[in-house]
Design a protein around this nucleic acid. Structure first.
Lengths: 111, 111
DNA sequence: GACTCATACATAAGACACTCATGTATAGCA
DNA sequence: TGCTATACATGAGTGTCTTATGTATGAGTC
């Protein structure tokens, strides 16, 4: 489905809050747990990870996975953990405000 | 606050579902009812209205308001009403999926 | 009469996250 | 040998946004 830009960072951070993971696995996890309603394209995923790393929210190193492949494994930094808390709060605030607008019925015509 | 791109159209459509209104009033209504948590900049507002009009979701005509000013008053078309229903459903589905990802705790490491 | 504020619309420049397409490489399996 | 899944990467293009700037006028204030 079409998505709302700027919302993926929180999902990535949250996913990494459970422990280190590489990009492909993060993408798969988000797809799975959302029932495939949320899919993050590879062209969006890898730049996003670089971006979050550049912000200091993630740290990365190359490792070999259990299946014998090279993978770039990301971990949440302390800054990343703080950012996650902030972003989660912002998201909830946003949804609350959004819902309020959707549910408020005007007494009279809007002008 | 920073916003999530692509989410405003629904708010505009919803606001117009209560009756015709001009851009400035729509913006004010969204700001008000959200407790100023959601503000739509004028540089985003007017292009968005044109966009929705071009899609056939809104119709517009110039009128003079009660306060004696020229204003471009927008109304929801039938297509717009259908679009609103679709967009609302999509938004709810998105938030649900999003919440599911945020709340799902993995049994084991994500890989 | 001059000034300021709120109302009302408009647009251009630039930022930025996305989609889509394409590319590399390799493990595992039939 | 060929196919699928895994794993990363990037470039071109798109579209919505922010920021800044501009026009114009009604209403109230000094």
């Amino acid at each position: 489905m079409h998505l709302f830009k700027g919302t993926f960072d929180v999902l990535i951070l949250k996913t990494l809050s459970w422990g280190p993971a590489h990009g492909y696995a993060i993408s798969r996890w988000i797809g799975q747990t959302s029932g495939d309603d949320l899919t993050i394209e590879e062209g969006a995923l890898y730049p996003a990870l670089r971006r979050l790393e550049a912000k200091g929210w993630l740290s990365a190193k190359w490792k070999t996975t259990e299946t014998g492949r090279d993978a770039r494994v990301y971990s949440l930094t302390d800054d990343g953990r703080r950012a996650l808390r902030r972003e989660l709060a912002a998201w909830e605030k946003y949804v609350t405000a959004f819902t309020r607008v959707l549910q408020t019925k005007p007494q009279e015509a809007i002008s």
